[in-house]
């Protein structure tokens, strides 16, 4: 076999030999993509379809499975806990996405200087939250935000504000979880934006500076528009991630972990799913919640598709 590391030479030196178009060669592509399809099929697609199936039953994991048709869905739409979970999930999502994007935009702009010293160190330290475990993060933040003994409330008391019970209150707990999510993803998002910003040629900024545009105007008129597609991308990934928030609410309330507190103030949809399925032994009802989640994802993916085609057309 001719050396493959020097193909150019071998074209001229060796006679052309046709590749054996054997059976092995023909199926090679399918073999290469097979692992993904097999694994996703078994552990992704089949469970998804099965969720639809189980949702039609009253399925006790250690008892009987009784077919109930669309009863679980009827119950779901009558269930204030479901709408509470939707509200919680949406609220946490807004509170975590908006500040995150704004901060990431600003910090990316700050990082986008050619002569910035310690650039690598800055970038790396911003990625540290991303590699921190979610469980560890929750324990630390819960303590920092504690009502009686947390540092944040202590700081607030210094300026005369009454202590806020973040964990027990609805908006407080949403803020707390949003703070955790923002902390974790801000650095990652910043780097994404930074990359897009660096794709903008320096001359554009220079020309604007010569024309008298200050830093803020450069930001508004050059940076932000060039970031539009990646902003849309991060909004969508943040949404899909936001629908799956589970660990933070689970660990916030050790005395009522599955409901995230006595009034389910921070129970997200995925936590509600887990609570009903594995906590209350109602696999059927839990699966119905799963179906509802799936519908929401499809809707959001659809919106994203429309948005991104619109953005592309505008360019």
């Amino acid at each position: 076999m001719a050396t493959l590391l020097d193909p150019v030479q071998s074209i001229h030196s060796a006679p052309a030999r046709p590749v054996r178009e054997g059976w092995g060669e023909r199926i090679a592509p399918y073999v290469y993509i097979a692992p993904f399809f097999v694994i996703f099929g078994i552990f992704g697609l089949v469970p998804l379809l099965f969720t639809f199936y189980v949702a039609l039953f009253d399925w006790n994991p250690i008892g009987e499975h009784v077919f109930v048709g669309l009863d679980n869905f009827r119950r779901l739409f009558d269930d204030p806990r479901f709408f509470g979970a939707v509200r919680n999930t949406l609220s946490i999502w807004v509170l975590s996405t908006v500040p995150q994007l704004i901060i990431a935009l600003l910090v990316a702009h700050l990082l986008n200087h050619v002569r910035l010293r310690f650039a690598v160190l800055f970038r790396m330290s911003m990625l540290v939250p991303y590699i921190t475990s979610v469980a560890a993060t929750t324990i630390v933040f819960a303590q920092l935000f504690d009502r009686d003994y947390g540092m944040l409330n202590w700081l607030l008391s210094l300026v005369g504000v009454d202590p806020v019970d973040f964990v027990q209150s609805t908006w407080g707990s949403h803020l707390l979880i949003a703070a955790m999510v923002t902390w974790r993803w801000c650095g990652y998002t910043t780097l994404l934006y930074l990359a897009s910003l660096q794709a903008v040629p320096r001359e554009v900024y220079e020309a604007a500076a010569v024309d008298g545009a200050g830093g803020w105007q450069q930001f508004r008129h050059i940076s932000v528009p060039s970031l539009r597609p990646v902003i849309v991308f991060t909004v969508v990934t943040s949404t899909i991630g936001g629908l799956q928030i589970f660990t933070e609410p689970l660990l916030l309330n050790p005395s009522a972990p599955l409901t995230c507190g006595p009034i389910r103030q921070c129970q997200t949809l995925t936590l509600f799913l887990y609570e009903q399925g594995f906590g209350q032994f109602q696999f059927g009802y839990g699966s119905a919640i799963g179906v509802a989640l799936f519908v929401m994802v499809v809707v959001i993916a659809g919106i994203n598709y429309l948005l991104s085609t619109r953005v592309r057309r505008e360019r």
Partner: peptide
């Protein structure tokens, strides 16, 4: 998000 199918 395949998380929603954890039960099956």
């Amino acid at each position: 998000p395949t998380q929603l199918a954890v039960i099956p």
